[in-house]
Design a protein around this nucleic acid. Structure first.
Lengths: 202, 202
DNA sequence: ATTTGTGAACAGTTTCACAGCG
DNA sequence: CGCTGTGAAACTGTTCACAAAT
């Protein structure tokens, strides 16, 4: 399981999810090509990179394939806690945790600087003032954060998260975040996505 | 302006936004490295690919730089219409169009299969039954769609969008979308983003 | 006969390193 | 001198093409 290039990882993650509701017992790289748009060659190469023993000359067994992918990427195992920072419109969307059902993640805490929000909003996990941010993140060893604060607070809050030990941030703001080595950011922003689409044939 | 590789395009889009609230008059590639985490060499190479005349030996003029980027990527010019498909929790988040303020895009129509939603929800742009999808997309020559329907409808709706002439889809569902050549999908999914983070140092 | 596994060629992107400009 | 512009080298990922497996 040495090191899997990041495009391969992303494809495998998506593929695992696709397979999770694929009804037949076996699947070929050709069929995966139809479903995903990736060439069958990429798919086979991806599988080659994990040391995969479940393929034979008439395709792959879907269940074994899922298992292999999941443990190559450590997608199985214990549920990973994440925290939600910022409870404005975007943050509120995630309050019932629905978006993470059936995944390897769960939301363990939400933070907002407005007591109004932390007191009033209903949630399946505790909401706290941002004053508590460092304490709780350290106490629960949370490593991942979903950042949904106003743009103007984005970098300030990022610095606090990093200082508190966060290793990965999903960024819903439209700002770029500056983080030190060892911390990763995934940008999830409608505007950026639209601009990427529009800036010509991807 | 021949053809700019897509990693470069994405960086430039992000950089343009970052520069839009950078207060000083000039900026060096080194400073951009600090702010973004990209190496100064990548940054200079990116600028080299647009034919950029605004750099000199003590950095770049921020305003000229923004202008050059904007017109190299056609980020200026007329506002581009987009439609929103699916008005559940995620879709509703976008109803007031706030996420696109100040950008080159605007939402021109929203669709949902539930009359309940299209009638009751308040919005700054018209909401329609999905029955009207093809008609309106064609009539207004909409080329981009934001897909926020339930996972189970994702592929079916994608097929309709593609048939109606949509060329780019921002996918908020957690399913992979299968689209023909010439149509581009950008995935914007919390779960996928978290999994990418967790699947090891990006 | 189909479909996988895989070395080898290829393409795209990043990094290096340094000459040249202000 | 510090910083850009830019060939050339290094690297990463994708495509090709075909031998091996069933």
């Amino acid at each position: 399981m040495k090191d899997i290039p990041s495009p391969t990882k992303k494809r495998l993650i998506l593929l695992e999810r696709l397979l999770s509701d694929f009804k037949e017992e076996r699947i070929t790289s050709q069929k995966i090509q139809e479903l995903t748009g990736w060439t069958s060659a990429v798919v086979r190469r991806d599988f080659y990179l994990l040391e995969l023993k479940c393929g034979s000359s008439n395709g792959y067994n879907v269940q074994s394939l899922r298992e292999s992918i999941k443990n190559a990427l450590n997608l199985s195992g214990r549920k990973t806690p994440c925290c939600l920072v910022g409870l404005n419109r975007i943050g509120q969307m995630l309050l019932d945790g629905g978006g993470l059902d059936g995944s390897g993640f769960f939301l363990t805490a939400g933070f907002d600087s407005s007591v109004n929000r932390t007191e009033v909003l209903k949630s399946s996990f505790p909401l706290h003032s941002t004053v508590m941010l460092e304490t709780i993140i350290r106490a629960e060893s949370v490593k991942y954060a979903v950042l949904a604060v106003d743009d103007s607070e984005a970098q300030k809050m990022t610095d606090r998260l990093v200082a508190a030990g966060i290793k990965g941030i999903v960024n819903y703001t439209s700002r770029m975040l500056s983080v030190p080595d060892g911390v990763t950011v995934e940008n999830v922003c409608l505007l950026t996505a639209l601009e990427s689409l529009a800036a010509g044939r991807e």
